[in-house]
């Protein structure tokens, strides 16, 4: 059995901490799982541009506007790194985008919540990018070379997103009572979705030994969630805000926070497409693709014209 021998070599390579590269032999299940993860991740990056893009024209000053523009541009870049990484496994970007636009592919549940006030931009950078960093620093240790390298690059850039978000929250929290209330309101609305975006709890999402052994998955959702909570709760306290969880307590014995019950019904409803903004996000994404078409056509026509002129010259 040639496959069995190759599987042994493949697993030995991963166990030794080596990366799997695009042209290496890999089990079909590994390839499929990675295409699914990377494309969902790429979709999340570009759908994530929408709720924040909503506030670019209404940023409170030029500094904030320039920062938000740079952040949203980064998200587009992250989408591109990830689509590229997915393409190394033999899928076509056109195909992946069509899966997104027809609603066949999923993206992160978090982007189906609305951005109602400027403080939401702070909450997204601080909490959503904060949670994403927790997840992505783990994925950077994954076994697939192109995915792992994209994660390293993305994590470096996310650190700016995280800090600019916290700075927005801090500024509001130290402002007028109305501004502080706005920051607290944003925290109240984004806290639970951010806690949930790290995925179902371990009893609802049994980690397959195989994915762990193949280093596609490296830590359980609950372990990553605990780290996120441990780091974020003191950050909220520092600026005088309170996470909306009356059961949140620091456990001296374990050195970790224990949190209240998570409403998983809400999470699964949003995943199924019944979140507050699922329909709008998909419509905006399809529209953006349609509206961008003339740009792609113009660029193609320009390239053809340039080539022709070079031929004549």
């Amino acid at each position: 059995m040639e496959d069995a021998k190759q599987l042994v070599a493949f697993e030995a390579k991963i166990a030794a901490g080596q990366k799997i590269e695009p042209k290496d032999w890999m089990p079909e299940a590994y390839r499929k799982q990675l295409i699914r993860m990377m494309s969902q991740h790429a979709h999340s990056e570009i759908v994530g541009m929408l709720p924040e893009g909503n506030w670019i024209t209404r940023a409170p000053n030029l500094r904030r506007k320039a920062i938000l523009l740079a952040k949203v541009q980064d998200e587009g870049g992250h989408g591109l790194y990830l689509y590229s990484a997915a393409e190394t496994l033999g899928v076509d970007r056109t195909e992946l985008l069509s899966q997104l636009h027809t609603g066949k592919a999923k993206y992160s549940s978090i982007f189906n919540y609305p951005t109602l006030s400027w403080a939401d931009i702070g909450a997204i950078g601080w909490l959503v990018d904060g949670a994403a960093i927790m997840n992505q620093t783990v994925l950077a240790r994954g076994s697939y070379g192109p995915y792992s390298r994209a994660m390293v690059r993305i994590c470096k850039e996310e650190s700016f997103h995280n800090r600019q978000g916290y700075e927005i929250m801090m500024t509001l929290a130290q402002g007028t009572p109305e501004q502080k209330a706005m920051a607290q309101d944003a925290l109240n609305r984004w806290w639970w979705p951010a806690v949930m975006m790290l995925g179902p709890s371990d009893d609802k999402s049994p980690n397959s030994d195989q994915l762990m052994r193949w280093k596609v998955k490296l830590e359980s959702n609950d372990a990553i969630r605990e780290r996120f909570i441990d780091r974020t709760v003191p950050q909220a306290e520092f600026i005088g805000l309170k996470v909306p969880d009356k059961d949140m307590k620091f456990n001296e014995k374990t050195g970790h926070y224990t949190h209240g019950e998570i409403n998983w019904d809400e999470f699964f409803e949003v995943i199924k497409g019944n979140g507050p903004c699922n329909a709008k996000r998909l419509k905006d994404r399809v529209e953006a693709d349609k509206k961008g078409r003339w740009v792609r056509e113009a660029a193609t026509a320009y390239a053809a014209k340039q080539a022709k002129e070079r031929e004549i010259a």
Binding site: G77, L80, Y81, S84, R93, A299, T300, A303, A304, Q306
Partner: peptide, 23 residues
């Protein structure tokens, strides 16, 4: 450092600048 999609070399260089040298 990675790759980009583009219709020709000139635009590939411009896209590469925007994607890979923002910092």
């Amino acid at each position: 450092v990675g790759n980009v999609h583009a219709p020709d070399a000139e635009m590939a260089i411009q896209n590469a600048r925007d994607v890979y040298t923002r910092r």
